[in-house]
């Protein structure tokens, strides 16, 4: 369905996406993970035809996005990270407008709008202005506007940011359903559990490069039995760099991060690491409030590959 080859883009000499390869089969649900500034949005912008790449190729089905963008865009639907709707218009008016932009008209348009309102669960509030909606309802209309023309490829850029759990569940179920009906999905999110729930294959991107790709099981094998240790501190550390240097020396080169008063590291033997670290923290007069030890998951893989937490 989507074939991206050697895709590159730089701004002001700084490389944002670097020789990216991405192959996604029809009907797949593909999770694209990466911290802020990893190049996810630029990649999505290029795939959707908004940003012109410096080099590389993008094929949507059999259509070359760079040569025939409007023809290729017929097959894709974009759910942007921001709410891309007219807030002074009702949900129905918004959907009618976006349907027309996708070339729908007449009875077909009315029918699709009614179907989409049902899919996103907003038939009862269809004639209310979007500005009066809750964050979750806006997000649902945001998705609705992207599926009106029944695209073969749906690209969703963090579609659940800042919404209540009920709306999140509704959105996840809707996306799962669309995927089960045959729609190909590219899904980016900071929430590991969403990606784990929806996606059959995951790509991890950082500094514009695809670092790893595979199913959740395949990716977890990359870290073996490594667990993630989070040590929550009572107060922020005064000199983080000094403490990090001491921790690395103590644990013979192991990688540590400190963010928002939480020290994070990976280890196959968490007890051994803790036995070494705790005396140091005591000597530095640093008070611990909580210690979490997590079994291997996507977060662990992400930390292992990028050295950063997913929400950095």
């Amino acid at each position: 369905m989507l074939k991206v080859e050697q895709l590159s883009k730089s701004y002001d000499g700084k490389s944002i996406v670097d020789q990216l390869h991405l192959h996604i089969k029809a009907g797949e649900a593909y999770g694209l993970l990466g911290p802020n500034g990893a190049g996810k949005s630029t990649t999505i912008g290029m795939i959707s035809g908004l940003i012109k790449p410096q080099s590389g190729s993008i094929m949507i089905g059999e259509v070359n996005m760079l040569q025939a963008p409007k023809q290729a865009q017929r097959y894709i639907g974009i759910v942007p990270q921001e709410i891309a709707l007219y807030l002074k218009m009702t949900a129905r008016e918004n959907l009618m407008f976006w349907g027309r932009m996708y070339g729908l008209k007449g009875q077909q348009l009315k029918q699709r709008v009614a179907e989409v309102l049902q899919i996103i669960g907003l038939e009862d509030r269809a004639n209310d202005k979007v500005g009066a909606y809750s964050g979750g309802m806006k997000r649902r209309v945001n998705i609705g506007a992207a599926i009106l023309h029944e695209p073969q490829l749906l690209i969703m850029d963090e579609p659940t940011v800042g919404i209540d759990p009920q709306s999140r569940n509704h959105i996840l179920q809707t996306v799962k359903q669309l995927n089960e009906q045959g729609m190909t999905i590219i899904y980016t999110s900071h929430y590991m559990e969403e990606v784990e729930y929806l996606c059959t294959r995951i790509g991890i991107i950082d500094h514009g490069k695809l670092l790893a790709e595979g199913s959740i099981e395949q990716l977890q094998q990359l870290v073996g039995n490594a667990t993630t240790i989070h040590i929550h501190l009572e107060e922020a550390v005064e000199d983080e760099q000094d403490l990090l240097a001491k921790l690395v020396t103590l644990c013979e080169g192991r990688s540590f991060t400190i963010k928002e008063s939480v020290i994070t590291t990976l280890s196959n033997e968490p007890q051994t690491v803790l036995v070494r670290i705790l005396p140091l923290l005591e000597a530095e007069h640093i008070t611990i409030s909580k210690i979490d030890i997590q079994k291997p998951n996507l977060e662990t893989v992400f930390l292992h590959l990028t050295g950063r937490s997913l929400r950095d």
Partner: peptide, 14 residues
């Protein structure tokens, strides 16, 4: 400058 314009550019709109 708003996301609605980007969304318009990803539709069939020239």
């Amino acid at each position: 400058n708003e996301p609605v314009y980007d969304r318009q550019l990803t539709t069939m709109l020239q």
